[in-house]
Amino acid sequence: MAFLKFLYKPKNELESGGRAASPVQADANEPEKTCPNCHKAIPLSRIWANANTCSCGYHFRMSARQRLSFITDKGSFEEMFTDIVSSDPLEFEGYAEKLETVRAASNEVEAVICGTAKIGGNKCCLFIMEPNFMMGSMGSAVGERITSLFEYATEKRMPVVGYTVSGGARMQEGLVSLMQMAKTSGAVKRHSDAGLFYLTVLTDPTTGGVTASFAMEGDVILAEPGATVGFAGARVIEQTTRKTLPKGFQKAEFLLEHGFVDAISPRRYQKSLVSMLLKMHSGGDAR
């Protein structure tokens, strides 16, 4: 088609493909990802440029570091508790090796990153869970990091913003994982009783022990469009009850309808929404 180009003169910028639309003229070799919603293949660079969303509105999963750069003010994040890592309290078969593989593959040492940051100029404590690390499962280190973050926030009188993504408690740490639900909840309660603000953003998927603890304990609970949020897994429910699940079961919109989240927050406007909510709660102590 290149030879036709000289016959066709674009009348304006739009016809010529728009200004600086470099990602649109995709490199033929660039890897693509097919959107599960609209089934279009989209070049990765375009997905990344749009905070991991498709133009149809579908939200792809996002690694914790990617989310960090997208939600926080540039250079404001100071990571904390990096020395807290999972041990293998039960000496569970294959767990130590699994941790090693996952660490190498994900470039993270644990399934959550914590620290302080500024979001739209508002200082806050922040935790972001990592879907690429054993699906954000909560073991002792995740529980310890989040508990420590809430204790720090309570002491410094700071608000907490938390991004959840998790398959639940990490079964390889058995009861020690289970107890992290109580431990984190206790720390959230103290933070709350001190009159401080906690905002959670539920992202795909937030399930099991994390849903049944700190994910649902926020003063304000946001959810990303289409995120799966629930306690029991949908397949398990289907198998045990032998009933067809209703359409959109356990999706963010379903939770909104049933009154369990405050709002659905598309990524595009998320940073401004989060910073507005932080600002609205900065009147008293939570500065």
Binding site: M181, S185, V188, A212, S213, A215, M216, G230, F231, H258
Partner: peptide
């Protein structure tokens, strides 16, 4: 289904707190 619709996760979380 009903348990999820009525917030099983939240009910447990509230008890923990």
């Amino acid at each position: 289904i009903g348990a999820e619709e009525r917030g099983q996760g939240l009910a447990i979380a509230e008890n923990l707190c």
